[in-house]
Structure formats: C-alpha cells, structure tokens
Computed example of a mutant assay.
Amino acid sequence: MTKKIYSTTVLNRGGREGSATLPDGTHLYDIALPGTKLENGLTDPERLFAAAYSACFNQALTVAKEKMGIETTTIVETTVDLYELNDNTFMLGVKLTVTVPNVSKANAEHMVNYADRICPYSRALRNNIKVEISVES
C-alpha cells in the first residue's frame, strides 16, 4: 500500500513571466524567462527544479549514509539544461555532480547509486530525460 507523506500546491499565474503563490495567496517567487538577469527575487523554473532536485537527492544521500554507517557531508550540484528540439518542442537535461568527501570512491559510488534508486525525483525522471551523475570523493 502506498502511504502519502506530504502534499503541497503552488499556483502559477503568467507562466515564465508570472509568479508562484500558495493557494492562500502567499507569494513565493516571481518567475522570469530563461536568461533573464535574476535579481530582486526573480527565478526561473529550471533553477527551481535544480534546487528541488538537489535537495531531494541530498536527502536520499542522507538515508544512504545512515544505512551504510558513513558520516560525511555531501554536496549535490545540479545543472538543468533547457533544450529546444528540431520540432520546436522543448526538453530538459540534468547533470548531478555529487561530492562525497573523506569516503572511498567505491563507497561514494555505492551511496550515490542507492540514493538514485530511492530519490523520488530520480524515479520520476528515470527513462524520461537524460540524467548524468558524476561522483567526486
């Protein structure tokens, strides 16, 4: 049985030149087109996605570290690329660079592979977009 552990709702008005708010009207972000200078609280959807995926993957690494009995601080750098295809549609690509200091390369890779299996973002993207993962120890 699947057990829901969290749910959230965000509203967007204006697309890539709009805003993100909670249903009660609480303002979260002003949204900008890719390539716009991001200042005064502006962000873009790709940056939000990169932040969310980084946080989610790093939390999955925390679970992996606990399971393996490893104490270290991990850093997940996430790059989200937006591509325009020949048919004028769009797709994303993602690169994760995971830094696992003071851990052997083999243990770091094992930890990252486990995190990739349990991370909800990784599961959602698997077989949908290209995700490249590199490990630095």
Rank of each mutant, 00 (worst) to 15 (best):
G25V: 05
V94K: 00
T74P: 02
I118S: 06
S54R: 02
S54V: 09
D24G: 02
F57R: 01
K3Y: 14
R47G: 11
I5C: 07
L85G: 04
G41D: 03
S104D: 13
G35S: 07
E136R: 15
A124G: 07
E136A: 14
Y29Q: 08
G18R: 03
G14M: 03
K37N: 11
N40Y: 07
S134W: 02
D81H: 13
A51K: 09
A52S: 15
T26E: 11
Y6D: 07
M68G: 06
N102P: 01
V135Q: 00
E71L: 14
E66I: 03
I133T: 15
D44Y: 04
D116G: 07
N12M: 08
K95E: 12
I31W: 00
L85Q: 14
K4S: 13
E46Y: 04
S54P: 06
P34A: 06
V10K: 08
V76I: 09
G35P: 03
S104E: 12
N40H: 14
T73I: 15
A108N: 03
E17I: 07
P101W: 05
K95C: 09
K3W: 02
K4G: 07
V100R: 00
L38T: 11
A20G: 08
D24E: 09
K67E: 12
V80I: 15
L42Y: 06
R13V: 09
V80G: 01
